[in-house]
Amino acid sequence: MSKLISENKTLSKQINFIPKAIPQSMKSLLRIFISAVTLIVLWQSIVLFFALPSFILPSPAAVFNKLLERYDILFYHSWITAQEIILGLVLGLSMGLLFALQMLLFDPLRRWLLPILIASQAIPVFAIAPILMLWLGYGIASKVVMAALIIFFPVTTCCYDGLRNTPSGYLDLAKTMGASKWQLLKHVRLPAALPALASGIRVAVVVAPIGAVVGEWVGSSEGLGYLMLQANARMMIDEMFAALFILAALSVSLYFLADLLINKLIPWQHD
């Protein structure tokens, strides 16, 4: 009887699992669509109701026209910003993981590195931006470093916490199986830390665009941040909004892409 009940439970789990998976993504798409439409309607009503001039708040239609009209320029600058974000993410994530691993494996190093890591967070990234421009120039490098720096702390702490908090039972079991320190890291600590690392990545993909755009604001000759500053100076507010729209779309897509990949690659994270 109990076997029957437990089998039933597993079966119902499976049944629940399959049909839910598809509508869930449809539902979230629908939610995004409804939110977007509501926002646009609200935006348009504000423009109409307050009779705002286009240099204060352009209408959604004007911004959409700008998107179509200046797509080549917008695409070029978006591509630059996207590169800065992606490279910044790669650099920041790998540095964060490396730092966390070092702190885990070499205890004396942790005692030296942790205060530096915390102190580094006390300095606002905005304040470092001009120095980075000075050292790395107005090109893409300073923005990549900026994006990497801004995600470095959350990634390192998430990784370090994940690596440090491996369930002790897993480690015990592997030790009784004769695992060496490196084997423990490779086969137990690292896979067990992946869900924590995933949280770090989720934060990183949201924050990295901020770093890149801040870098562009401080000094650059290309990128969406640069385009926004230029458009603002020339009172082309609709173009500024078009750039802002692309930046938001870029960040949101990046987040959903990361989330999708994480869920696919680390399916056990919700245990």
């Binding site: 079991l173 592997a174 004769g178 695992a179 060496s180 086969h187 896979p191 680390i266 056990w268």
Partner: peptide, 22 residues
């Protein structure tokens, strides 16, 4: 142990063969 200590990222067969990793 009291807990099964199955590695959640490995399937049943890989968990059964877990000791071979070391």
């Amino acid at each position: 142990a009291q807990q099964d200590l199955l590695m959640p990222w490995l399937n049943v067969i890989d968990n059964v063969c877990f000791a071979f990793k070391f």
